[in-house]
Design a protein around this nucleic acid. Structure first.
Lengths: 198, 198
DNA sequence: AAACAGACCAAAAAACGAATATAGTCTAAA
DNA sequence: TTTAGACTATATTCGTTTTTTGGTCTGTTT
């Protein structure tokens, strides 16, 4: 890593820690500067605004999140197991992140600033997620696990799956129903593969 | 209808209209009284608090909502068609209600009062919805459309389906993706019955 | 009594202005 | 090139006053 990259990262890390402790709105540029052992104006040498720092913090967290899910998927042997791993890992990781930022969520959630943030994140990662699921389905077809006919509908099916998992996600995270997670994941994937019809 | 029932309903109707126009928090007891052509204290003769009036308004709307969905389901010939009708009618009806209360949602959504409301509604209707889906699945099994084995998992499967539909709901309502509604409903039910495995 | 109105009150919310904090800039020094 | 610190204009917080509002009480009409 270049020297200035190290400094940039140390600033982001300082901001990350402060956001976790105090929330977005209570974290000031001076707090960050002090925590990073720099003067405030130094931050403006590396970043053009407060928002840019926050964006980077959030992007790093999201990338980390996504990476965790991808790694879990890559360890599985077939498409159906991958889908299960996707659901379970995603929700578990979400839980730890929510826990990490639990205080920040409490203090910041009401202002609509956070709402804009969610929209930004959704636009950014929704598509990647669809593509990820799409590639798993494709793999399932190629390995003869899934019927070839679904190839034509793979796009909308991926979208549907992401949406369904998001429903499960919301249910589980907002109502603390973690016990049912693996059951639901198994059932969803079983239903998906075998169907309930006779 | 009894005379006092008529008056009670007229008060509720007045409140309903005002809530749609101005939102929960901007609708005062005096507004309601004036709109109903009564004095303020008269409202307290029929209702014990403002909250009680609002609860009744919301309950009526929810019952109406639920009734619309049930009616649509009852017109279908088999379980799978019922499930499709459930998804489509629910989301369409939701859309019209959201539209009706669009202004109220705008002005009221931030305060956490509305959050408590959602929790109340969820607790109240979630279970009814699960039972509804459960009964459709049961019907599907009885009519040999669905495999008998799923009988054992009917509870958790209903819960899963409600959750998935809620995901689709959120996606469609918050991102105005109404065009994809019937496609998604068809695909979800097809996936559910036939599965994608080979 | 049943159904209502209007004055009334305490408590909550809105309005307002002063004090404070904060994002971002500028200048200069290391 | 990198950093600090003083500086400013704007946004936020905070304490105070004023207004609004849910709810009660008293009394009047039906």
């Amino acid at each position: 890593m270049e020297k200035d990259e190290i400094i940039i990262q140390s600033i982001i890390d300082a901001a990350k820690k402060l956001i976790q402790q105090y929330g977005l709105s209570k974290t000031t540029m001076e707090d960050i500067a002090k925590a990073a052992g720099k003067g405030k104006s130094t931050l403006y040498y590396y970043f053009k605004s407060k928002e840019e720092i926050f964006d980077q913090v959030i992007n790093q967290e999201m990338d980390d999140f996504f990476q965790t899910v991808k790694t879990a998927i890559s360890k599985q042997v077939d498409a159906s197991e991958m889908l299960k791993a996707y659901i379970i890992t995603k929700i578990k990781t979400l839980k730890t992140k929510v826990n990490l930022y639990r205080f920040a969520i409490e203090t910041d959630l009401h202002p609509e600033a956070i709402n804009d943030l969610f929209i930004k994140l959704k636009n950014r990662y929704d598509n990647e997620e669809k593509k990820l699921i799409g590639s798993i389905l494709k793999l399932g077809i190629d390995s003869k696990l899934y019927r070839a006919e679904i190839q034509a509908e793979i796009e909308i099916l991926s979208e549907l799956l992401v949406t369904c998992v998001r429903g499960v996600e919301t249910e589980i995270v907002t109502h603390n129903k973690y016990k049912t997670l693996t059951d639901k994941a198994d059932m969803l994937v079983n239903m998906l593969t075998k169907g309930i019809g006779r």
